[in-house]
Amino acid sequence: MTEKYQNFLRRYGTALGGLALFIFFAIAAENFLNPSNLLNVLKQISFLTILAIGFSFALTTSELDLSFATVGSLACVVAGGLIYHQFSPILAIAAGLFAGLAAGVINGLIVTRLKVPSLIGTLAVSSIATGVSFWITGGVAFVGRWADAFLFLGRGQLVGIPVLVFWTLIIAVFSLFVLKQTRIGIHMIFTGENDEAARLGGIPTQKMKVLGLSISGLTAGFTGVLLASTLSSADPTAADGFMLTAIAAVLLGMTMIEPGHPNVPGSLIGALTIGILSNGLILMGVEYYVQDIILGMIIIASVSVSASTITKAAFSV
């Protein structure tokens, strides 16, 4: 019985912590339970969650992607720039997604072909993405009256719920399906678990790593498009701020459900916890910089619990 209890705590302890946080703010922070505030929390964490899920695909194949945030910004200015210049929304969306995917494929090739550790390779791509973003915009942001169809993507509502929440759910469910029910998914997991064994078993591990990093790039591209739509502007640093929060969400997620390993439900709960924390602190009037301090502590605490996977991803070629 005690073993069962321990196992339960190991798998759901962090989620219970998140729930405790929710209850705390429900009591301590005025307006926290207000439905419009709760919907706002969900809306706020959607970018973060989509980025986190993408990042966890890369991490599943035991590679890090430190470029997703700036790649998201790049996709944001690519899509926003095209809208701003009166191109069709479809073209703008496609171009934004393509920019993200291309960055992901490049990351994959750098890691598998040039044998550059992902920690370094993706950081370099991140720098390139930032440079290109500023080049495209000339250092300013694209702002203006944008097509309604494009704006619906990020600002629309369905049955009173922000469209952003639906995007997040669709991506989460689809990712869970790919990882748990398909051959590609389990091949990615095997690649991350035991690269050499997977290769001997006939799994194309290099391709799986390229795929993991490409998915991370594609979701970053999608996030960039959603940001351009939600903000109805495109800033060359639009998504940069999500870098640490998204990684923190994944790391927090790795302390639950499948402890030690990136997993979709964990990332969702991790993102939700971080969203609740930041919203609650704001409502309580706590200074904004406190969030950064807490975020850093969350990262250290999470990695100390699930160190091996992240160390392997960071320091093996």
Binding site: I186, I189, F190, E193, N194, E196, A198, L200, G260, H261
Partner: peptide, 8 residues
Amino acid sequence: DLALAPRL
């Protein structure tokens, strides 16, 4: 080393 993935 048996080439297994222990977690799976």
